[in-house]
Every structure is written in structure tokens, then in C-alpha cells.
Design a protein around this nucleic acid. Sequence first.
DNA 1: CAGTTATATGAACAGGTGTACAAACGAGAA
DNA 2: TTCTCGTTTGTACACCTGTTCATATAACTG
Lengths: 122, 122
Amino acid sequence: MKTIRSYKGCSCRAIDPELVESIKSEMPEDDFFQDISDRFRVLADPTRLKIVYALSLREMCVYDIANMLEMTQSAVSHQLRTLKQAKVVSFRKNGKMVCYSLVKCDIAKLFAMVSKQLAAEG
Amino acid sequence: MKTIRSYKGCSCRAIDPELVESIKSEMPEDDFFQDISDRFRVLADPTRLKIVYALSLREMCVYDIANMLEMTQSAVSHQLRTLKQAKVVSFRKNGKMVCYSLVKCDIAKLFAMVSKQLAAEG
DNA sequence: CAGTTATATGAACAGGTGTACAAACGAGAA
DNA sequence: TTCTCGTTTGTACACCTGTTCATATAACTG
């Protein structure tokens, strides 16, 4: 991300094709934006955020989480699958149970960052 | 976000209601998670990320953006509306044109942060 | 005034997402 | 083995989202 440069209006419909091309050439590939948006989407759901928050407090099994959130165990399992695929959580088998914990990654930092922003705004 | 504490299995179906309550009591209100997920959702779309990126380079009008992204002006306008409501972008009227620019806020930092993470992972 | 240009808005549609229900799986217990 | 418990998975459905098309608005031009 570079700094903002001044820009003197636009010719719009009769825009200079070379200018458009120059801007386009500065843009990363589509995959780049897709990957980043995918990463943000993981945290774009209240249920998943609750799970992430709870797991930041303590390791928990699926049924615990379901009870805490007053949700179906199935729904929680589906969301854990999403978080697992995104490598936000990891798990450890313990007999019949599966204990989930938060992978110490920057996603947790993202959460904390936005949460702090929100608090600052009031 | 507190640090992870060890947790010795769960009693699951016969879980101690007081334990569940104690975890619940440590959880913020629903609105908290809703607000944060809303904020992440704004960046959970490739098109909006492209716009944010482009506007970090230079101020642009709607038609410029549409040309650059090879998208309908209407589609771009709809997305700019979303970004405007989220206070990620601001605008300045210039005759018929409306020039959009990036509000210098932490959302741009989030973008940079995730983008950096992604690059580090390769 | 009418006509054009830049943008915004509303409706409709396809595709995606989160949840509940039901069934299946896997590991212990009897 | 059969049973139960914790979890996973498949399906269905309601809801949400992003785009397109068509129309509306707002500002400049002649």
C-alpha cells in the first residue's frame, strides 16, 4: 500500500486507456484479493468470533462450546470445520472428545485490533 | 483477549452448569461480536478490497474505478456505498463527478497486515 | 428549455452462507 | 457384540450478498 497521490479529476467516459492500464498494472493479481477476502470472511461471522474468543480463554470441546453459545452441537461443529480449514483453530483428540484450541496466529491479533478500535470509538 | 488456560477435559452432556455460566459471563455482549464481524465483512469481498487498494494509491471517481476493474459503474457504486457506510472511504463532489478517497483509518492497516501475513506464508 | 454525462438507486436474480434435522461415524462401556 | 456418547457429515431451507438491468437524480452544455 503506497501513499495517496493527488489526482486532478478524470476524463471519465473518455478516459485515457493508458492511465487505466497504468493503474491496473499497479494492482496485484486477482488471487491476491481473493485470498485476503477469504481470510477476512472467516472472521465475518458472530458465531465464529464467539468461538475464537472463548478458545482464547480456554481449550474447549465441541459440546462445551455448544452449551455455552446455546447452539446446536452440529452448528458449532460446522463452524469449527471452517475455522479448522482456515487454520485458526487446532484440535486434540481425547477419547470420544475433541478438544479445540486457538492456534496462536495473527488472526487473534486482528480480532484484538478491531475490538480495540471499536472500544476507542465508543 | 486473555491468555489460554489449561482445561482438563469436559463432562460434556452432564456439564457443570456453573462452569458454562462462568464462561458465558466472561463473554462480551452479542452486539460486540456483531459489530466486529460487520467490520470484517466489509473487507470480505475481493471487489471492495480492490477499490480500497486502488484508492490507497490515488483518489478516483466512480467511472475510473469501473474502467479499471472492468466492472459496471452501477456495481462499483453499490460497493462504494457499502464502503462509505462503513466509513472506509469518503468522497468529494467535483461538478458532475464524485471523487472517492480512502479514509485514513485502521482498516487500511488491517488490509496491510493480512496482506503481509499472506506474503510471509508464501 | 432539452440533451448529455456522472452517479445513485431500486428490483430481480443467481450464488453463497449459517442453521437445524437426521443419519453416520468412532471410541469407549457394558 | 450391543449400547451410549461425542462428534462429524449430508441435506434442506431460509436468509444474505453481489451483480446486472433499468430507471432516477443531479449537474453541466447548448
